[in-house]
């Protein structure tokens, strides 16, 4: 298979990038997309040129590292797969393939096709956890009964690998599908109820501070998500956020914080 690749090359975050054209030959349909890029890079290295830098790790669709915008769609034209699971048989001989990094101001380009997705880490750190006593008397999670439907829905939300395809696909570069999946996986379980208010408020606040856009319900994210996370999660996050916004002022009014103790 003979292809023309148009790849975004950018030396570093501050440099101005551009699309560069690379003709490539001898590509087999059974090669994965990343193997095709490996072939390109071997050629570039042999010619003394700098290889194209791209993110990858597990190459089996579970780590969320690979992150390419291929011909105008995150993870390429196929559905429910990551870039590493995309095979060259999805393309035809003579095709031109445009490869760009995921674009969002909250995902600054580090080099070529690699973007910094640590904004997702900070959203997680703002509340994507449950506090569990681990001092030797941890209760087995299976001893807490959970409704089967809720357990399944929670597990579905938890399959989000945080690749950022939702942000890349969204015309507004919104991170609501990711944030809603991380909120949903706990909101549906009894273990997550305790910190539900702070979780919704803090994660949404962090998401906004990172500079992601707003959700306008186009649904592009759920179509492009390699794990099939749906808009149902965003609706759940909206509910969680609204109820947390109503609850927080009430609980704050009734609690005595450390700085204004009655015993000062």
């Amino acid at each position: 298979m003979k292809l023309t690749l148009k790849i975004w090359r950018q030396k570093n975050h501050d440099a101005k990038g551009e699309l560069k054209t690379y003709p490539i030959d001898g590509i087999e349909g059974d090669m994965s997309f990343l193997e095709m890029l490996d072939v390109l890079n071997e050629g570039l290295i042999n010619n003394g040129e700098e290889p194209v830098v791209f993110d990858h790790d597990c190459r089996e669709g579970i780590c969320g590292s690979c992150s390419l915008q291929i011909n105008g769609e995150p993870h390429g034209p196929d559905r429910l797969i990551t870039t590493c699971q995309l095979h060259m048989r999805s393309f035809k001989d003579g095709d031109t393939i445009v490869i760009e990094p995921f674009r969002a101001n909250a995902f600054p380009v580090i080099k070529d096709l690699v973007v910094d997705r640590s904004a997702f880490d900070r959203i997680q750190q703002a509340g994507g956890y449950v506090s569990v006593n681990t001092s030797g008397n941890t209760v087995d999670a299976n001893s807490i009964p959970v409704n089967k439907h809720d357990a399944d829905e929670s597990f579905n939300a938890a399959t989000c690998i945080g690749c950022g395809a939702c942000v890349a696909a969204c015309k507004n570069a919104s991170a609501m599908l990711f944030t809603s999946a991380k909120i949903s996986q706990f909101a549906l379980l009894p273990q997550g109820k305790i910190e539900a208010t702070e979780r919704a408020l803090n994660m949404v606040k962090q998401m906004d501070e990172e500079g992601f856009g707003n959700c306008s319900n186009t649904g592009a994210c759920e179509i492009e998500c390699p794990k099939g996370i749906t808009l149902v999660n965003i609706a759940r996050m909206n509910r969680e956020y609204v109820s947390a916004s109503l609850e927080a002022p009430l609980s704050n009014a009734w609690s005595i914080d450390d700085e204004s103790s009655l015993f000062d």
């Binding site: 011909n71 105008g72 760009e100 570069a173 856009g213």
Partner: peptide, 12 residues
């Protein structure tokens, strides 16, 4: 806000 969230547009 939405337009400001992606300063560099996609070529494709």
């Amino acid at each position: 806000r939405n337009r400001g969230a992606r300063s560099i547009k996609y070529q494709s």
